[in-house]
Design a protein around this nucleic acid. Structure first.
Length: 422
RNA sequence: GGAGAGAUGGCUGAGUGGUCGAAAGCGCUCCCCUGCUAAGGGAGUAUACUUCAAAAGGGUAUCGAGGGUUCGAAUCCCUCUCUCUCCGCCA
């Protein structure tokens, strides 16, 4: 959520950001300012009433102490209406705060100035491309190879759980494990602390990173226990430090975590969802950064560059996109997507998304640090995939396939696989 | 799952209805003393919101969370959460 004071001071900028992100109307900004105005007026009023009431109570206490019960009783008799009035206004105050906050939650983060203004994915900017796209006539899509080799069992996955929950079998299970190890090792080498996180989170955590109320439908829920299956490790890892205050010297903090991710993907259909392109359960190594607000810009750049280095090491051609305002999402100030080339499908597949959230997530989570002046200040958070497995696996299968129907193992994975070909 | 104990400021820990936002100690910051080290003396040291042009200063709230009783709650009552101990179960 945005800082209400920021909205008050930069109203036009907030509105412009909303429109650029594709919101139809900015009425909500005006509404929230009105609510805030009412709330602040009332807070002062209630404060005064409570001050009166407190000073009376002190007087009574003093009189009682001296044994002057009659005088005390006199004052007690006067307090009746004030008490009722306070109660009444307190209820109104709570209600106003709830209304103000629920409006506040609906205002998206303001895009950074460097983000191109645009409405759809067509307005995203391709900022770099790496690798040579090799194309052979006999190239097959990964699902054909995977089924020939019995590497991925979609049918049994459907039987046991449902569509989008495949089994990985034999060498493919091994390839997945190799990738997870490779990604985690690389991250640790680059200063990220590895952590293992819970796979379920509670409602507060889901709210902290912004899945609630915006993207509730993306998550699987366990109503009996009040848990959500994590749609990404970002949720538990960012919430790891919820409500904490960091010492200045301890920033930045980097984490990496491997977890499965569960997404309902309601409404998805068509050719996009074939094979490994879109699953309900998939594996991902996530990267999360907690940083000083002055550094989040450059931290995003280094995060993106790190994610790119993984694809380079795997020898997979890819391109990097700077997402336009309309395609970047509610909570981000700036976002890069990495797309790997899928030669079997002849299309780009998103495998990483690196985002700067500014203070948007941190404010909800009360994630603060003690700044240069000894004051508590909201920090900035970032995250990125490093990387999501299924589409990387798809690209590896397709890129490294041989005419005989085998697959060469990418060089960096050979030590993890104990095999050069599968 | 059963039984019991507990949750107070950065930490330890006092406080069972009336100047308690909270004793004391530790830690931390500043100052003084001391030619090193050690020790000693003094002052300060929570957060959020609000008021104010700003600072200073006010005000309000916060003793796990939420509700209640009362003129007044850290203190009494109810609900919840978490932690610890014992028993049971268990990878």
């Amino acid at each position: 959520m945005l800082d209400i004071n920021f909205i008050r001071d930069h109203t036009e900028r907030v509105k412009k950001g909303m429109l650029n992100k594709g919101e139809k109307s900015t009425d909500i900004v005006d509404k929230v300012l009105v609510k805030d105005e009412e709330w602040r007026k009332l807070v002062t009023e209630v404060g005064q009433l409570r001050a009166d009431s407190n000073s009376r109570a002190k007087e009574i206490g003093a009189l009682m102490g001296k044994g002057k019960k009659d005088e005390a009783q006199k004052i007690i008799n006067e307090t009746g209406q004030t008490k009722e009035k306070i109660k009444e206004l307190e209820e109104l105050l709570d209600q106003l705060a709830v209304e103000r906050d629920s409006l506040l939650y609906q205002i998206p983060n303001v895009p950074d100035d460097s983000v191109p203004v645009g409405a759809t994915e067509n307005d995203n900017e391709v900022i770099s491309e790496w690798g040579e796209k090799v194309q052979k006539e006999w190239f097959k899509p990964h699902w054909e190879l995977a089924s020939d080799k019995k590497w991925i069992d979609f049918e049994r996955g459907s039987k046991v759980t449902g569509a989008g929950f495949p089994f990985y079998v034999g060498n493919m299970a091994r390839l997945q494990r190799a990738l997870i190890n490779f990604f985690l090792n690389e991250a640790v080498k680059n200063g990220f602390t590895e952590i293992q996180a819970p796979y379920f989170v509670n409602e507060d955590s889901a709210r902290g990173t912004g899945q609630i109320p915006d993207k509730e439908d993306m998550m699987y829920t366990m109503p009996r226990d009040g848990f959500f299956a994590i749609p990404t490790a970002e949720v538990p890892v960012t919430n790891f430090h919820r409500d904490e205050i960091f010492e200045l010297d301890n920033l930045p903090v980097y984490y990496t975590a491997y977890t499965p991710c569960w997404r309902r993907e309601a409404g998805s259909y068509g050719a996009d969802v074939r094979g490994l392109n879109r699953l309900h359960q998939f594996d991902k190594v996530e990267l999360v950064k907690f940083v000083h607000p002055d550094h989040s810009d450059r931290e995003l750049e280094s995060l993106k560059e790190y994610a790119e280095s993984l694809l380079e090491k795997l020898g997979l051609p890819f391109r990097t996109l700077l997402m336009c305002t309309g395609d970047m999402g509610f909570t981000q100030t700036k976002k890069y997507d990495l797309e790997v080339w899928s030669p079997g499908q002849k299309r780009w597949l998103e495998v990483s998304s690196c985002s700067n959230f500014g203070s948007f997530q941190a404010r909800r989570m009360q994630l603060r640090f003690r700044n240069e002046n000894g004051k508590n200040e909201i920090m900035h958070t970032l995250n990125g995939s490093g990387l999501a497995l299924p589409r990387v696996v798809a690209a590896i299968i397709e890129t490294y396939q041989t005419e005989a129907g085998d697959m060469k193992v990418p060089e960096v994975l050979v030590p993890f696989m104990d095999a050069e070909k599968i």
